[in-house]
């Protein structure tokens, strides 16, 4: 195995660049090293001006999402040896505006997130419980998969519709809405329906499925969205055919 590998990293310095450029660095090729280790090596020893986000370096914080050799990946989970002989292209996450180098602007997602009401909505008719909520393992199983989202935004980078439709709520947001809808402690399904069954909610999705392929935590947002389409369709039929019915 050779000693080093080249990484071609996107550089964008808003104070001096009009458009991004690429800078090549030679980094050690160690069999346990990930792209994140390589970037940290560059920042520590070669070029301290390189900017990127990272934190836990173990695939749970969701900070280090980047486009590596064309695929949306977590830099801390992408081994350099898997991209031999290189050079490894490291670009910022697709579909987001670039602030600097590999750092992208995530405000669009953050602004849309509260609309999914990603919290337990209580039943306002009842007083608050005086003991803890109880939930069986089967009840937790219903939503557990969708609770694994680490907001890494790889699904948004993978989704062609998000790149094209600025208003699309996106995979992670709808999966998160499902996480609460399917939680037995939650009573907010009606409120979320209004938001998520708007045209910029589930109906913009054409089930490309790339979001689920990109997801490092197995959340399957594509599945969450399709299931939600069924729910929304059932709800529409119910309200059209039985308008007097009460949920």
């Amino acid at each position: 195995m050779p000693d080093t590998i080249a990484v071609d990293v996107t550089r964008y310095r808003p104070d001096r660049d009009d458009r991004p450029t690429t800078q090549r660095y030679e980094i050690p090729l160690r069999k346990e090293w990930t792209v994140l280790d390589g970037l940290n090596y560059v920042k520590d020893r070669v070029d301290g001006t390189l900017s990127y986000r990272w934190s836990c370096r173990m695939g749970i914080c969701g900070s280090c999402g980047m486009t590596i050799d064309g695929d949306p990946k977590l830099a801390c989970e992408t081994f350099l040896t898997d991209h031999r002989p290189g050079p490894v292209r490291v670009e910022p996450l697709h579909n987001f505006p670039v602030i600097r180098d590999l750092v992208v602007e995530l405000t669009d997602f953050m602004a849309k997130l509260p609309r999914a009401k990603p919290w337990l909505v209580t039943d306002s008719d009842k007083p608050p419980p005086d003991a803890e909520y109880r939930q069986t393992p089967a009840e937790m199983d219903e939503y557990k998969q969708y609770s694994m989202c680490i907001n890494c935004m790889l699904c948004y980078a993978a989704c062609p519709v998000y790149g094209l439709e600025r208003d699309f709520l996106g995979p992670a947001l709808i999966a998160l809405a499902q996480r609460y809808n399917l939680d037995s402690r939650d009573h907010g399904a009606d409120e979320r329906l209004e938001v998520v069954s708007a045209p910029e909610g589930v109906w913009d999705c054409t089930f490309v499925g790339e979001c689920s392929r990109a997801c490092p935590k197995g959340v399957d947002p594509a599945g969450a969205i399709q299931r939600y389409k069924v729910t929304a369709a059932k709800e529409t039929l119910r309200s059209l055919l039985l308008p007097w019915g009460r949920r």
Partner: peptide
């Protein structure tokens, strides 16, 4: 934000 359109489902 647009309102729900029942035709989409």
């Amino acid at each position: 934000m647009t309102t729900r359109r029942p035709v989409e489902p």
